[in-house]
Write a protein that binds this DNA or RNA. Sequence first.
DNA 1: TAGAAATATTTAAATATTTCGATAAATAAG
DNA 2: CTTATTTATCGAAATATTTAAATATTTCTA
Lengths: 92, 92
Amino acid sequence: MEHKKAEKISKALADPNRIMIIKEVKKQNDALYCCDIDAIIDLSQPSICHHLKQLTDTEILIPEKEGRYVKYALNNSLIEEYIDFLHSLKTT
Amino acid sequence: MEHKKAEKISKALADPNRIMIIKEVKKQNDALYCCDIDAIIDLSQPSICHHLKQLTDTEILIPEKEGRYVKYALNNSLIEEYIDFLHSLKTT
DNA sequence: TAGAAATATTTAAATATTTCGATAAATAAG
DNA sequence: CTTATTTATCGAAATATTTAAATATTTCTA
């Protein structure tokens, strides 16, 4: 992974609300809906939308449209690539 | 790892200059000096100092004073803990 | 001890991010 | 077709981050 990409993923993970959202995706087993987040995070709907956009722009979350709803799944392989990048930084 | 801690590590990694610094620590085999960075990164001395502070505050880098100099080493075990946290986010 | 060199701190400006209210767009339900 | 519901976008305010000049601190060397 390019370090520019790793930087962007790091930035997307650098917020407590976005980490909460990712945790919730896991809890809901890759089937998190936008409106579920309202119940969990004390932010306005536009703010939640903004955080989701950062997570989907970086492809950490993969959105899938289902009628009026959007379902989010975690991009496990991207996380793996990011982990590989972190391993590559380590000294031996 | 607490997610507050993971958030802080993410934030510290969310900058191209700081990633460059970490890469340079690896290149120099855990023996990076402050003044070496001047040669690599086009930033003022106070800015470099500020970035190093973020990396040491989060304990990503471990500073060791050597007379007038400060030598930096990567905290490999913290990176491992951060990687474990990332694994824990993954869906199965 | 005085001067030089390396690193740290303070302060302020520029830029970026976060947040929310208002509003728009898309689709479902009646 | 009209209305309600879900998600997205715009615009503006509040907050945080990045940067560098000026200055301070620490320690080496002559």
